[in-house]
Nucleic acid binder design. Structure first.
Lengths: 282, 282
DNA sequence: AGCCTCGGTTCCGGTCTCCGGAACGGTTGG
DNA sequence: CCAACCGTTCCGGAGACCGGAACCGAGGCT
């Protein structure tokens, strides 16, 4: 059942060690983190290097190789969501002046598939591809709110880590919060993942009406408080609906006649390509 | 010496099978392409799926997982080149109206790390992360021209595949072409990789003065011919110098006094982060 | 200078992993 | 209704793969 290849699993964990965004890692450091012998790590690295998945750095360390970049771009190429969200994110940042992003559910986290940095941002960093928890982010709450009971149960069973004193850690409290989120159609999170940052998110729906992603705006609390909550919520919700429409979703208003050609560059497929392990729920 | 882990190598080749840009692949199909048994492929897939590197599609096939996307973004985050080239690519496309891209050398190919589609383009496709041959593209010629003799020899030894009747396949002819490229500071390729498309490229230099990438403009031949060759070459060469400067390169004109702070957002590191297996040549 | 530490690389033996082949349901299409 | 193809599971034997230890080179501290 869990027939899993040990060395392949080790290789995958090795690659994921670079998700810490460290530029290079050495053999001993990796051996320590993976709990493997140096020789095993060395073999893994030489094998992966031969395939181009890692590359040696000039200083003797190892880094991710360009093939990994290629593979990442191959994933992006199949994400309808990415194409649909781009222009909407630009608009959303213009309206709010803050960072905006789109995230999908993957396993027990939300992964930002696209992101635009705030105009206030000191330095523009390519921050897409980040993975953040579900229970303490606005995007995560949106995705959790539409999850099936059994899946939610699984998440709760793993425990809710308290990232700050304001993180919701009580399963009951989280359920109540999710019910409220479902009710009002948007979610927020203030000080829950990191002190000083806040965000507000709304759902993105695929053609079938299922929630396939969340779109959100995040900012330092001081600037976040400066925007009237209702106005911000309307902006984000409308942005979510805009992305949904570009994905081929039709709102409940036109459920009668044959549909005219819809607006944007939406795909004609009936299932949304979100490419998530868990995003394909019905 | 070549101590390589078989199953890890198989896993890597499996992942790279998705570089064909097919959305999903099945067990049998992969087994056929990799020359492995179905059970072995199945085991590889379940292992990779457990790590999030692949995900099951709703129709039973497998696709790349979001972790791959995350890893790709982690690579991009460390590419100074990406940040430095962005604005220059925008400008270059404005000047020429055609697709422009930046590529680096990896093994025996050039990988486009960033790309802007022509404004004429019918559909905007995310085409970054593509890998193209060296000997029949303008970018490839730029990178080949600065290569050490022994590395060039290795490339030639693998043989030059004729993608079209116009592809340069004679080692001698290629050497002459590369000498001409070095001489005039830019390269072009017309009908050499694919009939009907042409491109022109110029070098991008790191702080040390070594060529670390190539910047190029490509277009259908009819539109390509409409632009005066000298004007196009100047545009591309100047774009290459602009990127180089943003990377911290200082042209030969100020080699005397202590340098004032340079223009853009260039890194202060003395070695360029191109993240290529072969790009770190001295 | 000399020693000591820490990094990457290599070698080796024993265990358990991992591959191929074959059989098993489910589904599609003829 | 059978045939073909898919994904999945099971099994046995060959050999791959892990850990430990030794080797080497580079800094750094006394």
């Amino acid at each position: 059942m869990d027939a899993t290849l040990q060395s392949v699993s080790n290789a995958a964990r090795l690659l994921k060690a670079f998700l810490s965004r460290e530029e290079t890692l050495g053999v001993s450091e990796l051996a320590r983190r993976l709990g493997l012998g140096k020789s095993a790590v060395h073999r893994l690295l030489t094998t992966l290097a031969a395939e181009g998945l890692v590359a040696r750095d000039s200083d003797g360390g190892y880094r991710l190789g360009l093939v990994v970049f290629e593979l990442g771009e191959a994933v992006r190429a199949h994400m309808d969501l990415h194409g649909a969200a781009g222009p909407v994110l630009v608009e959303l940042r213009e309206q709010t002046g803050e960072s905006s992003q789109v995230g999908v559910l993957d396993d027990d986290a939300v992964v930002y598939v696209d992101r635009l940095e705030s105009s206030h941002s000191l330095r523009l960093m390519h921050d897409a591809g980040r993975r953040v928890p579900l229970h303490c982010t606005s995007s995560g709450k949106i995705l959790l709110a539409e999850l099936g009971e059994e899946h939610l149960e699984r998440i709760l069973a793993r425990g809710l880590r308290a990232h700050t004193p304001h993180t919701i850690v009580e399963p009951g409290a989280l359920r109540a919060e999710l019910a409220a989120v479902r009710e009002r159609g948007w979610a927020d999170a203030v000080n829950e993942r990191e002190l000083g940052v806040a965000s507000l998110a709304a759902p993105v729906r695929g053609p079938g009406g299922a929630v396939v992603a969340a779109i959100s705006v995040g900012a330092p609390i001081t600037r976040f408080r400066a925007i009237p909550r209702q106005r911000l919520a309307r902006c984000v919700v409308e942005a979510g609906e805009a992305v949904s429409r570009r994905l081929g979703w039709v709102p409940e208003d036109e459920r009668d006649r044959s549909r005219g050609p819809s607006s944007g560059a939406g795909s004609s497929s009936s299932t949304v390509r979100t490419n998530g392990r868990e995003a394909a729920h019905v």
